[in-house]
Design a protein around this nucleic acid. Structure first.
Length: 489
RNA sequence: GCGCCUCUAACUCAAUUGGUCAGAGUUCCGGACUUUUAAUCCGGCGGUCCGGGUUCGAUCCCCGGGGGGCGCACCA
C-alpha cells in the first residue's frame, strides 16, 4: 500500500498517457472539464419506452444521456461504447460517417472511465441491443486514472472499502446496497412522520455523554476550554424533548462508541431513536413491528426473514433457561449463577457480577439462536439504568431487545420517569464506575432535573439502522452497508 | 489487545516452495476492421508491501515493520 500523505501514484505510463491526452485535448481547444451539461435523461428512462422496438430498427426518439465510458469495441470506421450512469448501462454506436472524421477519432481516443455526454437517436442493433447512435457528444470530465478491471469489477476488499468510489463505479451490487439504504432511511422517516412524530436534532457534541453503556470519543472545545464528548446515544436529550411537551419525537443520526470493530460494530453508526408519551414498551413493540415490516416492503426485501407482526416474544430469563437450563431468576446471586454455569462446563469470567453473567448467557447462548425477528422482554434492572421497573416482576424492568439473524437490532423500554429512582440508578452507576467499570453511565444532573419537572409515561426505542440495512440487503458485515467504514489510518 | 491467514503489474489472476519462467487477461500505446457486446486479430509499455538478515543467488527461507482478512477478546 502507498505511504500516507503521498499520492498513490505508481510510476506508470498509463497515467502519463492520460495526462498527455488531457493536454492534447486542451491544445485542440477542447475543455476537458466543462461546467455543466443540462438536460440529461437517465439511461433507464431512455431504454424503458422502447422495449418493443424490433432488432435492426431505428426509433424516432432522440435522447441526451451522460455517464462514464465502461467499455469500447472498435470496428474501424465505427465503434460501440458502453455508457454507465446511476440507473444502468446503455450501448452507444459511433459512426465516422455521422460524426465526421475528426469528432469520430477524438471520441475513440477517449479512455475508459472518462465522463461523456451524448445526444443521439435511439435504435436497436441487429443483435437486439437497444442503443443510441451518437449524433453529437461532449467530454464532460477527463479521467486521469484507469478504472477497475471491466470484467471482474473490483474485488480487493481493502480497495473496495478505502476507495469506495471505485467500488461504486465498478460494482452494481454495491450501488444497489446504498440505494436500498437510502430507501430504508426515507421509509423510516415517512412512517414516523405519518404517525405524528416530530424529527429533532440534538447535540452530537456533548459536555456529558450518556444513554448507553459505552466508552466515548473525547475531544476538547477550545473556546470554553472544556472536555467534550461525541454522543454515544440520543436518549437523554430526546427524553428532555418529551419533558418539554413535544410528545412524539425521533432522531436519526450518528452515534460514536469508542469500542472494538467487528462485523456488526463500527465506531460511528446510525441509530434511530424515538420516544412517545403515554406509551409503554408494549406499544413501542407493536409500532416497531409495523415500522420494520413497512420498511422491509419499501426496500423490496424478499429474503427469508418474516417481519410480519406479531414477532415472537420470549422473556429474557425464559430464553436463557430454554437454551442453557439455567434459571437466572432463581439463581439470583453471583455465586449461585456462577456455580450453575460451572456445573454446565461454562467458563465464568472472574470479574463479572450477576448481571454481566446474565448478559454473557444472552450473547453466547441465546442471541445467535434468534434468527427470525424476536423480542426478548423483561431485563434485570442492573443492566438497564433508564428503564422503568416492571409492573409485576420484582428486580426486572420493562425492557425489550429485538433480534434477527442472530443480531440485536433494537432496544426499548418503558422509560423511567421517576427522578428520584433515576438518581438512585445513576448513583449505582457511579459506584460501578468507581469500581472500575469504564462503561458505567456518568451522572447527568441536568437530565435528572428535567425529570423533576415531570415526564409523562413514555415508551422509547433505539434501532440500529446499519444492522437493519444489513438484514434487508442480505449483507453479513456492517462494512458493506457503511459507505466509508472505519479502517486503520 | 491475542491467535491464525494474507500482501505478485493501475485492475483481475497464474507461477517458482532458493536457480534465465516472474506469465496471462483487462487497461494504455501502435496497426487492421462500419452492427459489436468479455468483439476479434497483430505488435508494444508495465510488477514481487517496506527494512534488515541468511546465501554464490530470494518473490520464495529467517527477523522486524506496515496494510488487509478471519476468529477470539472487547462491544446492549
Amino acid at each position: 500500500m502507498a505511504e500516507p500523505g503521498e499520492a498513490a501514484a505508481p510510476p506508470s505510463d498509463l497515467l502519463a498517457a492520460r495526462r498527455a491526452k488531457l493536454e492534447a485535448l486542451r491544445a485542440a481547444g477542447v475543455e476537458p472539464f466543462p461546467h455543466a451539461y443540462p438536460g440529461v435523461t437517465p439511461v433507464a428512462e431512455v431504454v424503458a419506452p422502447h422495449a418493443d422496438l424490433p432488432a435492426g430498427e431505428d426509433s424516432e426518439a432522440v435522447a441526451r444521456v451522460a455517464g462514464r465510458i465502461a467499455a469500447r469495441r472498435g470496428q474501424g470506421k465505427a465503434a460501440f461504447l458502453d455508457l454507465v450512469d446511476r440507473s444502468g448501462r446503455l450501448q452507444l454506436h459511433a459512426r465516422r460517417d455521422v460524426l465526421g472524421e475528426e469528432a469520430f477519432e477524438r471520441l475513440l481516443s477517449l479512455d475508459l472511465g472518462d465522463i461523456l455526454g451524448v445526444d443521439g437517436l435511439v435504435f436497436r442493433s441487429r443483435r437486439g441491443e437497444l442503443s443510441l447512435r451518437v449524433d453529437d457528444y461532449a467530454l464532460l470530465a477527463k479521467s486521469l486514472r484507469p478504472p477497475p478491471e471491466k470484467h471482474h469489477g473490483l474485488t480487493d476488499v481493502e480497495t473496495r472499502l478505502r476507495q469506495r468510489e471505485l467500488d461504486l463505479m465498478a460494482n452494481e451490487a454495491t450501488r444497489d446496497v446504498f440505494l436500498t439504504r437510502a430507501r430504508i432511511v426515507a421509509a423510516t422517516r415517512r412512517f414516523l412522520d405519518d404517525e405524528g412524530f416530530v424529527e429533532v436534532e440534538t447535540p452530537v457534541l456533548q459536555p456529558i455523554y450518556g444513554g448507553a453503556a459505552a466508552r466515548p470519543f473525547t475531544t476538547h472545545f477550545n473556546a470554553l476550554d472544556q472536555t467534550m464528548y461525541l454522543r454515544i446515544a440520543t436518549e437523554l436529550y430526546l427524553k428532555r424533548c418529551i419533558v418539554g411537551g413535544l410528545e412524539r419525537v425521533y432522531e436519526i443520526g450518528k452515534n460514536f462508541r469508542n469500542e472494538g470493530l467487528s462485523f456488526k460494530h463500527n465506531p460511528e453508526f446510525t441509530m434511530i431513536e424515538w420516544y412517545e408519551a403515554y406509551a409503554d414498551y408494549e406499544v413501542v413493540a407493536r409500532r416497531t413491528e409495523r415500522l420494520v415490516a413497512y420498511v422491509a416492503a419499501q426496500a423490496g426485501y424478499e429474503g427469508d426473514l418474516d417481519f410480519g407482526a406479531p414477532w415472537r416474544r420470549e422473556t429474557l430469563a425464559g430464553a436463557i433457561e430454554a437454551r442453557t437450563g439455567l434459571d437466572v431468576l432463581a439463581l439470583r446471586t453471583r455465586g449461585a449463577l456462577a456455580e450453575g454455569m460451572r456445573e454446565r462446563g461454562m467458563d465464568v469470567p472472574p470479574d463479572d457480577g450477576w448481571a454481566q453473567l446474565v448478559d454473557l448467557l444472552l450473547s453466547k447462548h441465546v442471541e445467535p439462536e434468534l434468527v427470525q425477528p424476536t423480542f426478548l422482554i423483561d431485563y434485570p434492572v442492573e443492566l438497564s439504568p433508564f428503564a422503568k421497573a416492571h409492573r409485576t416482576e420484582p428486580g426486572l424492568v420493562e425492557r425489550f431487545e429485538a433480534f434477527a439473524s442472530g443480531m440485536e437490532i433494537a432496544n426499548a423500554f418503558s422509560e423511567l420517569n421517576d427522578p428520584d429512582e433515576q438518581r438512585v440508578r445513576f448513583e449505582a452507576q457511579a459506584r460501578a464506575a468507581a469500581a472500575g467499570d469504564e462503561e458505567a453511565h456518568p451522572y447527568d444532573e441536568a437530565f435528572v432535573t428535567a425529570l423533576e419537572h415531570g415526564m409523562p409515561p413514555t415508551g422509547g426505542i433505539g434501532i440500529g439502522i446499519d444492522r437493519l440495512v444489513m438484514l434487508l440487503t442480505g449483507r453479513t458485515t456492517i462494512r458493506e452497508v457503511v459507505l466509508f467504514p472505519a479502517l486503520r489510518r
